[in-house]
């Protein structure tokens, strides 16, 4: 009897989990494992796949197009993380509070975070239209600046896509920072005032230490989003012009679905996955070390 009840207790949670587990296994875990297996093969659409061992992985280290895409991704990640982080922190500081007008502005600012990327990309294309009739070009014209190429100019395209990512991420990060600010003990600010701290000292000794968990979340999300960025680039520039905005994910997409080199695309995907996992482990380790000290 005892055996049965214990067995039942063990079984019931798994029964509840089963539908989700089956769906996830079929649509997520199986493709992940098949992708990993595929990375050791040269995939052929006619005939059987050819085992190539680690050749696809070795190729990734000597692929100049992938290296260029990786460099673009790094620029993308570092810029969006730093600029996005600083900007969202500043916006959060400015928009913290319960006043009605602040709540309205906060809601307005949050709209890009919940809007489809396809829509945002279209807005970006309208704003940064390269001709003289483009919205931003018309504004620049007021200051007698000649129309810019923006997303059609290889020197500017990556910067414009980075701006889109920042615009989309800032409101989301702002909410994380505002939640962090609300959790800071207000008496710490009073104590700092009594201690004679200036506004800058309060920011340094009270606000920023109190926001370490929020910074941690924002940085981690920004890094993961940045390294795996695809939709923002694909819907705006598609990686062009002249591969100026090519990032790792668009490179993988083209390798897999345009050049049909599935094995190699799977190997690069797996390398990106492994790198993201390592990044997360490093981040969690650093965060735990900060928490302990």
């Amino acid at each position: 009897m005892w055996f049965h009840s214990k067995r039942l207790r063990w079984t019931i949670p798994w029964l509840f989990l089963a539908p989700a587990l089956i769906v996830f296994t079929w649509f997520k875990f199986v493709p992940i494992i098949r992708g990993l297996v595929m990375s050791f093969y040269k995939v052929r659409f006619s005939g059987s796949d050819q085992w190539v061992g680690l050749a696809n992985f070795e190729r990734a280290f000597s692929d100049s197009a992938l290296h260029a895409a990786t460099l673009n991704t790094l620029i993308y990640v570092v810029s969006t993380t730093i600029a996005g982080g600083v900007l969202s922190f500043a916006v959060a500081m400015a928009l913290e509070g319960q006043a009605r007008h602040i709540r309205i502005i906060r809601t307005a600012i949050f709209i890009p975070a919940v809007t489809s990327i396809a829509v945002l990309a279209e807005i970006w294309r309208i704003l940064f239209y390269p001709g003289a009739t483009g919205v931003v070009n018309q504004m620049l014209g007021v200051f007698a600046i000649a129309p810019q190429g923006f997303m059609s100019d290889p020197d500017q395209a990556l910067f414009i896509v980075i701006l889109l990512q920042i615009w989309k991420n800032v409101p989301y990060n702002m909410v994380i920072f505002i939640a962090g600010l609300a959790s800071i003990n207000r008496e710490l600010y009073d104590a700092a005032s009594v201690d004679g701290a200036s506004a800058l000292r309060k920011l340094w000794h009270v606000t920023i230490p109190g926001l370490v968990p929020a910074f941690s979340v924002v940085i981690m999300l920004s890094l993961i989003r940045g390294f795996r960025v695809f939709t923002e680039v694909y819907t705006t520039t598609g990686g062009g012009p002249a591969d100026a905005t090519e990032v790792i994910m668009t490179n993988i997409f083209k390798t897999g679905f345009e050049r049909f080199d599935y094995g190699y695309a799977a190997a690069v995907s797996f390398l990106l996955f492994a790198f993201t996992v390592c990044l997360t482990i490093v981040h969690v380790t650093v965060k735990n070390r900060i928490d302990r000290t």
Binding site: N185, E187, D190, A191, V194, P209, G210
Partner: peptide
């Protein structure tokens, strides 16, 4: 001043 929540810088 001594505060209710101690207000020590963590």
């Amino acid at each position: 001043m001594v505060f209710q929540t101690y207000a020590l810088y963590p």
